[in-house]
């Protein structure tokens, strides 16, 4: 039997990878993928706990997260394409029109 902590450690690792990727990468699509990574890290811990406590709620949450993530991907990718069309770049450092 694989202990619970392994799953949780894996989940935490995925999540942290997502954060680090989000913070250090400059390309908008990579950042977007990092977000997905974080979401899936969380999903993993949901599933783990659902299995551990024999509760179906955790798995339902996962479905919710996946649906939201899919919607978000659709909107996000559309925004990214729009940005690229307008500015011909995806480097986040350059997208700073809101800066004072």
């Amino acid at each position: 039997m694989i202990p619970l902590s392994w799953y949780l450690l894996l989940s935490a690792t995925l999540f942290c990878l997502g954060i680090v990727g989000f913070l250090v990468r400059r390309n908008l699509i990579t950042i977007f993928m990092s977000i997905e990574l974080m979401l899936n890290g969380v999903n993993l811990s949901f599933v783990t706990f659902a299995h551990q406590w024999h509760l179906v709620k955790g798995q339902i949450f996962v479905f919710f997260v996946m649906v939201v993530a899919a919607a978000e991907a659709a909107v996000g990718l559309a925004i990214i394409i729009a940005i690229f069309r307008a500015r011909a770049t995806l480097a986040v450092d350059r997208i700073d029109l809101m800066k004072l």
Binding site: L23, V92, D93, I95, D96, L97, M98, K99, L100
Partner: peptide, 11 residues
Amino acid sequence: WQSGNLRSYAA
């Protein structure tokens, strides 16, 4: 705080 740098916001 409003640096316009997305990564600093994320941080």
